[in-house]
Design a protein around this nucleic acid. Structure first.
Lengths: 146, 146
DNA sequence: CTCATTTCAGTTGCACTGAAATAA
DNA sequence: CTTATTTCAGTGAAACTGAAATGA
C-alpha cells in the first residue's frame, strides 16, 4: 500500500473492519447463519413480537431485506409471522422456541469472535479501543436548535 | 440495535468504518473520483511505472478490477499503458502529468476527510486510536516455523 | 507443457431504489 | 386521496471467481 495511504485513519479502520468482518462472517458461515439473521433474532428476543417494519427499523435493516431474511428464518422454523388483527397491512413476527435456542447458540459464536478479534490488545487497551471506536462512529451532532 | 450487539467490537468497528467510508466516498464523488482510482494513482506515483499485475498487488486490488479501473484512468488521460518490450504479456502503466496533478488534488481531499473523520477525538486520543487500529487490523501472526 | 498476464463475464453479500399490491 | 406495510425485481460499489486469449 502507498505510503500516503498506509497511515490514514480511514484506511486503518477499513482494514480493521475487514479483519473483523472476515472473522465474524466465517464464524457465522461455519454455524450455518448470517449477520442479518442474528440481528433480527436478537431484536425479537429483546423487544418481543412486533411488525416487520418495526424490527427492521430497530435492527437497521432495509424493509425489503427484512422481508427476504424473515422468509429464510421462517423456512428454518426460527420465527413465525401472523397477520396483525389490528392492522391488516402488518405481519407480526415472533421468535419460536427453536429461534430462541438458535440465538443462544449464535451468542456463543459471537462471543468467541470478539475474543479473537481483540486478541492483539491487552485488557485496558481493549476498553480504550471500544470507547474511542464508539465516539468515532457516532453520527456527528447536528447543529443545536436555536 | 439490540443490547447484545451494541457494545460489540465488531459492531463498533463496522459503524466507525461506515461513517469513515461515507465521508470519504462522498468527498471522492464530489471531486469526481473514487478510492480505487486514488489508490492506483498513489501507487504509481510512489513506485514509478510498472506492470498492471504489480500495481494491483501493491495496491491490494484484484487484477480484474485493476484492468477496468486503469481503463477509466486512461480514458481520463491520467495514466498511459504501453506493451512491455521485455515481456509481451505485460502492459507497463505510468502516470501522466495530468495524473500527477490529479493525485495532488485528491491528496488534499483525503487530508480533509481524515480531519473530519477524527474530529470527535482530541489530539492524543487520535494517536492512541490509530495505534490500536493498526494493531487490531494487522493479520494475526501465522504459527511460528519449527 | 506449464505458468503469468490481461481481459471479460459473472457472482456474492450488503445496502439500497422503485414499483406493485394491499389496507389504514 | 394519501400514507403505511409488505414483497419482488433490480441497481451499485467492493471484492472476488472462472475462463479465455496471449505469450514467457
Amino acid at each position: 500500500m502507498a505510503q500516503r495511504i498506509e497511515g490514514r485513519a480511514t484506511w486503518l479502520v477499513s482494514r480493521a473492519q475487514r479483519r473483523g468482518h472476515r472473522i465474524l462472517y466465517e464464524a457465522f458461515a461455519a454455524a450455518g447463519s448470517r449477520p442479518y439473521r442474528y440481528r433480527l433474532l436478537a431484536e425479537l428476543a429483546e423487544s418481543g413480537p412486533m411488525s416487520q417494519a418495526r424490527v427492521g427499523e430497530l435492527a437497521g435493516i432495509d424493509p425489503s431485506d427484512v422481508s427476504t431474511t424473515l422468509a429464510e428464518l421462517e423456512a428454518a422454523g426460527l420465527t413465525a409471522r401472523a397477520p396483525d388483527p389490528a392492522d391488516g397491512r402488518r405481519k407480526v413476527v415472533a421468535l419460536t422456541a427453536a429461534g430462541r435456542a438458535e440465538l443462544q447458540r449464535l451468542d456463543a459464536v459471537v462471543d468467541d469472535v470478539q475474543r479473537r478479534f481483540l486478541a492483539p490488545l491487552g485488557d485496558a487497551e481493549q476498553r480504550t479501543f471500544l470507547e474511542l471506536l464508539a465516539r468515532t462512529g457516532r453520527d456527528a451532532a447536528p447543529d443545536a436548535a436555536p
